[in-house]
Amino acid sequence: MNTFRTALNASTLFPFRLTLPEQIRVAAEAGYEGIEFWMRDVDAYLEQGGTLTELRRYAGDAGIVFANAIAFWKWADLDERERAGGLELAIREAERLAELGCPSAAAPPFGQVEGSSLERIADCYGELAGRIRPLGVDPLLEFWGRAKALSRLEEAIVVADRSGVADAKLLLDPFHMYTGGSSLEALSRLSGDRIGIVHVNDYPADPPRETIQDRDRVFPGEGVFSGERFASTLHGAGYRGFVSLELFIPDFGGRSALDVAKRGLEAVKRIYGVQ
């Protein structure tokens, strides 16, 4: 089945210390349709004298879509001054994303959220969406398995439902589902149009869930996660968007960035049924 579109999350290439144009080139040469870039790399590119217009043209010429951006906004921080600063940053970065033609950005529970109720987080997410959606950028609600609040898919669904945001979309990630104890069955409560993007990865049985770290993620199909079942559930929900390879492996043993990207794409295609 030709079900999903493929994207490369730039985190996978972090060990190679590439510029954003270099990341785009590698993704294109490997055969991905899109890239998930990190806002810090946009900042670095601009600081070196590049422009957003040039960057958008470069991606277009390479045939690469900006699938999503990885951002860190303290939109739900318990400190109101921190939260206000987070919203201001979100607006500034959303303006840049709109100019790049990037439709969305991750909105994880970044900052101090311990002790925050889901109702408050829902209100904060509603305010975030109200600020940046008019700019043409959708905040994708992301849960982090180790977060002090908003750590499970079930909680993210509640937040989205109570936020008042029409068609609020979630960002899904098997690693965070695992570390936070989310159930795959909870996906049955989501229709495909409620999913903004899906990060794909796998994890080994050891280290155990209590101590496993981002650096322990492995390529799809090389761990104990049932990627095929996950893919089937996504397909059944009607999701047809991007599956984006997100790894944090610190050392690839001398392999080149292009070799790693190609290996990742092969794994994604094999497990997620992309032809």
Rank of each mutant, 00 (worst) to 15 (best):
T3D: 10
F14T: 15
T19C: 01
E22Y: 01
L46Q: 11
Q48A: 09
G49V: 01
T51F: 11
R57V: 13
G60R: 14
I64E: 06
N68H: 14
A71K: 02
W73F: 15
W73C: 04
K74S: 10
W75G: 02
D79Q: 04
E82I: 07
R83H: 06
G85F: 02
G86N: 07
G86R: 04
E88R: 14
R92E: 15
E99C: 12
L100N: 11
C102W: 07
A107V: 07
P108I: 10
V113N: 02
V113K: 02
E114C: 00
S116R: 06
R120S: 09
I121D: 03
A122W: 07
C124D: 14
G126S: 02
A129F: 11
R146A: 09
A149I: 03
S151A: 15
V158L: 13
V158R: 12
V158W: 12
A160P: 07
D161V: 05
G164I: 10
V165Q: 00
D167M: 11
A168S: 12
L170T: 12
D173A: 11
P174V: 01
F175R: 07
H176I: 08
S182A: 10
D193C: 07
R194D: 11
I197P: 06
H199S: 03
N201Y: 01
P208I: 05
I212N: 07
I212L: 09
G221T: 02
R229Y: 12
S232N: 10
T233D: 13
L234C: 13
H235V: 00
Y239N: 02
R240A: 06
F242H: 06
S244R: 03
L245Y: 04
D251K: 00
F252G: 08
F252H: 13
A257F: 01
V260D: 10
V260P: 10
K262Y: 01
G264F: 04
E266Y: 11
Y272W: 14
Y272R: 06
Q275C: 07
Q275M: 10
Q275R: 14
